[in-house]
Nucleic acid binder design. Structure first.
Lengths: 171, 171
DNA sequence: CGTGAAACATTAGCGGC
DNA sequence: GCCGCTAATGTTTCACG
């Protein structure tokens, strides 16, 4: 969970694999001026430490018919609202909402946020029709949801999964 | 740019590679009940069609000291503001801003959005101090920027790069 | 779509700096 | 401690049936 010591070579490996996760160990080794075995040892260490969380293929949403990207701000009701005379305390709206979100495939990301909105959702759908159905039939139906505010991406200016690797802490 | 015909097997391949981009072709073949060669041909086709855009390693931001995730709404000034007597027409603030964003490593995503904010930025930084420096020294200094509104992620409820693969259009 | 063979990559053990 | 060699094993890839 805590931070890991990363030297210059580790950082370079991370940069390389963030840009191309399928490079062979040999290729990575070459680019960091190492032979394959120490390079592999480093990569394994980064994987086991959880610095590299996962390798994935990135799919183009437009190519699979998901032409609309929306960000939805969601505000939840304030109070636990079990049936008025229920003996069992209702679980919190936040928790129930989080559970629900996990099951909605259109929602690819959800964060609890500071500010006047409780949650920010990133939603991939086919088109406005699909979005509208998702809102009416799913999101707005959820009992924890008080109100929502949606914005739609008109243009992707920049989009990368590669995190900026900080410069070595000059010590 | 257009959509590609994807059968059930193609969709399954995409699901598998979105979950693990380093699976060997052999493993993928096994899971879709194909032998390696036709499976590889399908994957190659998906790559060449741009359906699979990239393979990447996902790095845990906390593990490399990027503990703070912010979403920043940016509003740009309305008018092209070249020097009053310039002969050369100023390029649009939107374009200049887009150019600048590309060069800021803290900004990992930027979308032009509908609504009263022009752009939505996803920003990864170390801490509030770093964020504050980024705002003062970089974002707010940019001539196109009129005002900004920031929110910070308190909790990651859900976060995946895997897009929902739609069910086959039952035809 | 499947088979097989050559080329290539991964990985563990060991010796050296 | 961290590097690099070697050699066995496993994988990718492509021509062909």
């Amino acid at each position: 969970m805590s931070k890991i010591e990363l030297d210059k070579t580790d950082r370079k490996i991370l940069e390389i694999l963030q840009a191309d996760g399928r490079l062979s160990n040999q290729d990575v080794a070459e680019r960091v001026n190492l032979s394959p075995s120490p390079c592999l040892r480093r990569i394994k260490r980064l994987e086991e430490a959880g610095v590299i969380r996962q390798y994935v293929a990135l799919v183009d949403p437009d190519k699979i018919g998901l032409g609309l990207l929306a960000y939805v701000n969601v505000r939840l009701e304030k109070h636990s609202e079990g049936p008025a005379n229920s003996r069992v305390p209702a679980t919190s709206p936040r928790f129930e909402f989080a559970q629900a979100v996990a099951a909605w495939p259109e929602v690819v990301a959800c964060y609890a946020m500071t500010g006047d909105m409780d949650f920010l959702l990133r939603v991939h759908v086919e088109d406005m029709d699909h979005f509208s159905r998702f809102m009416m039939a799913t999101l707005l139906r959820h009992p924890s949801v008080l109100d929502v505010k949606s914005s739609f991406a008109l243009q992707r200016i920049k989009e990368t999964t590669a995190l900026p690797i900080e410069a070595p802490p000059t010590r």
